[in-house]
Design a protein around this nucleic acid. Sequence first.
RNA 1: UCCUCAGUAGCUCAAUGGUAGAGCAUCCGGCUGUUAACCGGAGGGUUGUAGGUUCGAGUCCUACCUGAGGAGCCA
Length: 569
Amino acid sequence: MNGVPLYSTWTGLASGGRRAGRPGSSLTCESKTRRARAASWRRSTTPFPSTIGADCLVGRETRLVAIRRSGAPHGSLGARPTLATTFAGTPVHPARSEESPVAAPTYRIADILGGRVAAGLPVTVQGWIRTRRDSKVGLSFLHVHDGSCHDPLQVVAPAALANYQDEVLRLSAGCAVTATGTLAPSQGKGQAVELLAESVTVVGWVDDPESYPITPKRHSFEYLREVAHLRVRTNTFGAVARVRHCLAMAMHRYLHEHGYYWVHTPIITASDAEGAGEMFRVSTLDLANLPHTPDGRIDFAQDFFGRPTHLTVSGQLNVESYCLALSRVYTFGPTFRAENSNTSRHLSEFWMVEPELAFADLTANADLAEEFLRYIFSAVLAERADDMAFFADRIDKDVVRRLEDFVRSSFVRMEYTEAVAILRRSGRSFEFPVEWGVALQAEHERYLCEEHARRPVVVLNYPKEIKAFYMRLNDDDRTVAAMDVLAPGIGEIIGGSQREERLDVLDRRIAEMGLDPAVYWWYRDLRRYGTVPHAGFGLGFDRAVVYATGMANIRDVIPFPRTPGSADY
RNA sequence: UCCUCAGUAGCUCAAUGGUAGAGCAUCCGGCUGUUAACCGGAGGGUUGUAGGUUCGAGUCCUACCUGAGGAGCCA
């Protein structure tokens, strides 16, 4: 979608090129010895040998203090404002350890690059090497990344460091370091400030640089999926992780501030016929020796819960119960679909947010969906400008403009009946012909939001035959109060409905769809005791991340994707 | 699950049925306040697996495996 180039990932582990400033020949002769010694250091419980010099001892002291500090609440971050805003210029006051005050407290690179740490101050940073470039002048440039922001910090390591020959010149992509020194305006181009190092301590080596999977070059996303435990070290996946977090926090913030309570609905469910797809069975029975009932069926009475259970496909039914007491609620958690779906938009395990509001109809539901989406995408634009600039540069050049349009423009709302009419008079020959009563195909949805409206579209009131039993029957007796939100470039991002609050109608719908009313006894109870009109929707959280980042494949916006035939890590 | 495409060096890709190559990465050297650095050199291969056709298969055929794109299902 969106013309995303296949190999547009960018690791950011820029090449050090042909390394200059290598140890001279006399040192080269010792390289194997040194390598073996380094390996033994790694195995040793003592992190560093006592022979590596005073600078390194200072570095070690700093490191230990920093570890202690990071255990304290918020450590050097000091008083951080709420998540609602990001704050260039807000000074950060590092906490000082009372028992061991040090002159170079640890800062996040985000705070340093964000201008919140004054130049001239002694500071410590901790992170991983992205690149090393050496200069004959007697310097090495280390790009150190700690994940706190998109950009790395340039650390200038002078050859005068005691461990320069032995360690600094052996640093490669992925090595973990603690660097202490003074912040100064950069003499080079490309960064405003840099750290003039007084010590660089190696915390963790990369065992064999040649076999380190994240090399300073382009990698295909397909390849990086095979090293999912390391891919977050690339620019692309680090940016995805930060944007994903930003969206999640914005989601919670919006709902919290609008009076919604987060309800932790169960992952294991006994409702096995919600109509939302194939389910994963949860069982402790011995598959090689299943117990049977006298009539030859599997005896689930002997299973862990004494009945068949599955992983949830939706928290909606459970959250309706809380909705009819707390008025405004939502679920957010993993959901599971055992469909054999092999597309860039489907995962077997994905995250869904499902708000539910009482005393509300479909219109209120659509209003909420629209305002909610606009809010979380606004938050990404405001809070993750660094990562969004990267996505626009390397992944999808239109992503920022598209998000800005999304946030600015109101959504188009149309009835299903109207949508069918638009499609029929579009003059387009669709692979699947359109007529009233059929489900809209991907090609139809794409036409509606990408060509007809050119912005997000909410389609309302679908034929009852193609929607779930719990959706409220409209007065026309042909449609239910369902809605889908279609986003350009991604398709259906939200599905929701007003729920059927009338017990007699609900029972009729359960019967029509051939479902067992006994399974829904508690769900029916909600209609017997103080029932009210209520509505809600489910937003595929990972799809929202896809939309916000411009990433082409949903498997690349979740840390460890589960898809049919694939559950590594 | 269906349709289509693709599997060649660590990565990204070349190679009329006729001796398997390049760029990057790695290692060695040169140069440099560098920044996807640059220049020279070296090592690196059971061409996804198993069969088959052929004097000869990376290339053609069959099956399988893996991955990707699209469809369906949906979020």
